[in-house]
């Protein structure tokens, strides 16, 4: 249903709501009950949209030269590239994670800080195309996901470790939370090395594109 909607070139919001409507009607929910479920579902999920609260700050900073300041700062550190900024952020992210500090930082770190810095580093030598701007933005958001995914089990009292331990126990394979943390270390280290390589390849690609 969703795929058909997008294939027809319909607007995303329309596709989502139509998908909800069709699913509900097919499974025998009447229209009024559907409206109630839809309204309740929307109200119960308002916290997903809390990030709107950060937009005025980001807007004001942008107007007053956040990006220009990032460019100036990055220019002083000549060897910084978008990839290296991601490396540094990922390292901080994973180390903080090991101490139980979950940065969860798309809203707090990536949008206001890491993305503008990486964008600035990307255009020290030449201008970025719209595609490159989007690629850097995507990589910035992805870096947060890599850190979250591969390093969240480094802390023994994190909810994910406790979830794994309790689920495995209920399935009849008791595991020790400390053991989960221990086995997460190689995963975090290997994933960090892979991310550094990945970022390096990305920097090279950006550089090659800019030389052309």
């Amino acid at each position: 249903m969703i795929v058909i909607g997008f294939a027809l070139g319909l607007d995303t919001i329309a596709v989502v709501i139509i998908a909800a409507l069709v699913t509900a009607l097919v499974s025998g929910i009447d229209f009024v009950s559907f409206l109630t479920i839809l309204g309740k579902g929307f109200m119960d999920n308002r916290m997903v949209s809390l990030f709107f609260l950060t937009l005025p700050t980001i807007g004001i900073l942008e107007r007053h030269g956040l990006k220009q300041a990032a460019v100036n700062l990055i220019k002083k550190m000549k060897k910084l590239t978008p990839g290296r900024i991601f490396d540094i952020y990922l390292a901080i992210r994973e180390i903080a994670g090991a101490f139980g500090i979950s940065l969860q930082g798309h809203v707090q770190f990536i949008a206001p800080l890491i993305n503008p810095m990486a964008q600035a580093a990307g255009k020290i030598n030449s201008k970025l195309t719209a595609l490159e701007v989007d690629q850097i933005k995507g990589r910035a958001a992805a870096t947060e996901n890599f850190g979250n995914f591969f390093a969240q089990n480094l802390f023994v009292a994190s909810s994910s470790v406790l979830l794994i331990a309790s689920t495995m126990k209920s399935l009849g394979h008791p595991v020790d939370p400390n053991g989960i943390v221990l086995y997460t270390f190689p995963v975090a280290i290997i994933s960090y090395i892979l991310c550094v390589l990945y970022n390096h390849v990305f920097d090279q690609k950006l550089l090659n594109q800019q030389e052309k």
Binding site: I13, V16, I17, A19, A20, F34, L38, G41, D44, N45
Partner: peptide, 8 residues
Amino acid sequence: LLATLGVV
């Protein structure tokens, strides 16, 4: 809205 879709 996607989360809402999930609820539905």
